[in-house]
Amino acid sequence: MTADVSFWIVQALNALQLSMLFFLLSVGLTVIFGLLHFVNLAHGALYALGAFVGFTAATLAGSYWAAFAAAPIVVALVGVLLYWALIRRMRSAGPMNQVLVTFGLIFVFLDVFRIGWGDIALGFAEPELFSGRSELLGVVYPTYRLFIIGLGLAVLAALSLVLTRTQIGAIIRAGVDNDAMAACMGINVERVFFLVFCVGCALAGLAGAVAAPVLSVTTDMGTAILIPTLIVVVIGGLGSLKGAIAGSLLIGFVQTFGSVLAPQLAAILIYALLAGVLILKPAGLFPARG
């Protein structure tokens, strides 16, 4: 390997960038899990929807920022539809029926993408503003990747502010702790659930639009990202912001440095990590409920 410090700084930035992508995806999923007790396997499909909607918006408007704006809005609207048509009814239907319904949604979305956008992989460019490279900590690094890191940190800061400092945040935390009790205290839990679900969907859509310029937009991208996202959520512990960020950082760094230091094991590492964590801490590292 190399003893060059800048090499390790770049790899650390790579790890941070990957962690932030995971964070944007997993934070919505984990709060929906924790608050609604709802297993949304279609979360990955919503991420893919964000990427496809972003592709269309960016192509039509000729600007990346159209994708950045349209993806979270459109995906949140789809989330509203899903909530009223299915999710609300499924909340009391038990986890097995939730698995069946959201697995059905994965299948439906897969063909919606095929019919709407075709089978050929797509891509769109990063914004002009963040193209090229910048210098940071003495290394030259792709600016767009720095933007992803910054965006992830901004979302983290905003969410933690809302959760710890505002009334709605207190209500959400109360709901995660004990939703029946919160309802008894006169809180309209249904409305909070709905709001949280929509924000979670919007974040998934945003993650799709943000990841697309780095990756490619393919019909199976939602299924491919589902498992890593679930791993992040489960390792961190369900329902907590702290868990989501801890899980994201752990997976991002293990995957990046694993592929640098032990490339033969790269495919197995995150599963080994998951198994190890669950054997030692059967409810993840930072469960929201004791």
Partner: peptide, 18 residues
């Protein structure tokens, strides 16, 4: 596009009784 049809059947199966 069999995924679409099978997916809708799964959703319908849950809505019909679960």
């Amino acid at each position: 596009h069999w995924h679409l049809v099978v997916g809708l059947v799964l959703i319908a199966a849950v809505l019909a009784g679960g």
